[in-house]
Design a protein around this nucleic acid. Structure first.
Lengths: 203, 203, 203, 203
DNA sequence: ACCTAAACGAGACGGTACGTCATGTCTTTTT
DNA sequence: AAAAAGACATGACGTACCGTCTCGTTTAGGT
């Protein structure tokens, strides 16, 4: 996906390019990210190592590319008028994704790698994460307009109120994720955002 | 810390043990976790490599031990009667810690490593994270008793409402942490937990 | 055998001593000399490593001791009056020994080790080899007295005329040893030693 | 020498190849064979260890190659008509070689190593030893043709009559080698091969 | 019968080298 | 000219043994 728009910066072998991404996806699935080697990728893809080094700066960037190609584009959230229901939709979907091995392995790998590599972190967030946060934020903005969410709420923080608990649990493995947990989080987070009856600021 | 009371097996050289932990802390600070090498630790500590492999299963476990030895014990939260103030204390302190290089480097490393190693994740969480969550939970329980927090709130989720957004921002680097951000999070999270005026449960 | 006469230099555990020699013989047989380790010997013998280091200076010395204990004492050659027949006896016996795995493995090992360790070489030769050369020399001396071997022959060289070719073949593996080869060597060597009809020196 | 003409496989770096052989010769000279390590060779040659492991199966094979490159080709023995004189030439030369440290150290090492490694033994003998035996055998064959050596003599055994005693003394260190010893051996061995005056075969 | 000193088993220790793996670069050969 | 193939220097891996060094625990005289 990140390569989707680069028309022709001298790249030659589209065949090699695809074979490499395919090999990465396969090998990450088979052996995990830690045991993933450039040598193995080259061998599996039937490609010289140099060809990989030529086009990707790090293993992380390569995995990100391979993983991004796998993900569909992010659709805007529906607006049924029922904020709670609409948000339960995204959060439940996120819980499901985080639990699906196909996404879990590369997601954890990329998050891990991002800890030591801020450049990768940025690309990872911008490519895969931010779009999801943005559509949620958009839905919240709509709710704000119709008075279901308080006017003065900082929507960036608001979004984190929904996703933060999820990721905390998932990344630190403090407890398992479940659909009912997703619902509880949505429930609490919405309570935090609800407009007050009485005039005057918060706190 | 985790080794403080173990007179257990035939462990002999306390001198070597300490030298190793010290070398780890120094080297992580100097070169970061990724460039940390068992060979370098052994050399710096004046110790045979086998002595390290004998007592720690992985580099992660070793760093965890070294890092844990650095951290003081976790004190219970004060209870001034003002929940908001008391919680702002912990959350601000957490933000400060996450930003201090001395803690940031090993914390990120251990979080990253935990992604690929659930056993390490468990030890990491139990040793370093859970105690902080627990004291916060305890303070919330007290607040619950005096009616500042709704009776029916799930305190595990409640705690995540405070820490989740923080870690989300920090781990994914979506935006910088600041003291005012800490306050905002406390503000919103407390709003979510406040008892309703009207009778009738939540949800 | 080399330890047979040491009455009491503070040595205590005869049990351990024997267990060590036994372990050495077994392990050399099972894995060869190169793969023989002090650690394995200690483990097999149920003995601390120090006990081995206490009593033997090198692995070679230990193997020599173990091997020497296996060999019987050397008996003098019979003197039937027929030098050729008597010598064929020893030489054939030597060929047989060199071919028997039980002797071959440690013999080769000790010869190899002797190349790098002159002290071991001396002990090896004095203990295991020289006696055999001496009895042969003795038989040749007797032959000399009855005129079957020339008066002026240097018996040390004479003995080497018999054993030299054998060891040359065996050590360098230029060709296999056989009984008929033994006989040929005896034949040729005796021809070299036979007194000349004509008076006057050799050459 | 053994590598001189091989344009065979994908071998690339002739520079590395030569540096390795040079390092081996130097290090064997400086520290002896036992203390020779692959790591030291690689370091001295400025070469990766893998490059050594790629081209040589064992330390012994490497030393053999390095040693062989040092030795000149073997010239045929002169035929002055005087067998005794011609043979004294080779045998004296052999004694001299066996005593020269430059040859002694690797020769002993290779002989030792050959005891535990028949494949190496074969290569060692074929490369370095057999040629010398062959030229000697050739000279004896010539002597046979002019009646200085008995017709029915097995020349393989005959050659061992000259070299066997030498190697026996040298390998087992039963006594020192000297020029006069060389002459004595030639003297005796030739006596063994001389044709009988009387008709009728040997033994 | 006790006492003391050594020898002992066990095995941790600081080291050295092993042989393997993967890195990222460089070189050759093929297309 | 770019690609595959793969050799190369580098450097770390985790393992095997080395020979030394504590640890208690036998065990054997000497008292």
């Amino acid at each position: 996906m990140s390569e989707a728009k680069t028309p022709d910066t001298g790249r030659r072998s589209e065949r090699s390019h695809q074979a490499i991404l395919k090999a990465v996806v396969e090998l990450v699935g088979e052996q995990g990210y830690t045991r993933l080697t450039i040598e193995a990728i080259a061998a599996r893809a039937g490609v010289g190592k140099q060809t990989i080094y030529r086009w990707w700066p790090t293993k992380g960037a390569l995995v990100l590319d391979a993983f991004a190609a796998l993900m569909g584009d992010v659709a805007p959230l529906p607006d049924t008028g029922d904020v709670a229901a609409d948000l339960r939709g995204v959060i439940r979907a996120t819980v499901a994704e985080l639990g699906a091995p196909r996404f879990e392995v590369p997601s954890r790998a990329l998050t891990a790698e991002s800890q030591m590599d801020p450049a990768l972190a940025k690309q990872f967030v911008d490519t895969l994460l931010r779009p999801n946060l943005e559509v949620t934020k958009e839905r919240l903005r709509a709710a704000q307009k119709v008075g279901q969410v308080a006017r003065d709420v900082d929507l960036d923080v608001a979004v984190e109120l929904f996703f933060g608990p999820l990721f905390h649990r998932w990344l630190l493995r403090t407890a398992p994720l479940s659909e009912s947990y997703a619902d509880t989080v949505v429930d609490y987070a919405l309570a935090a955002l609800r407009p007050r009856k009485s005039p005057g600021g918060r706190g």
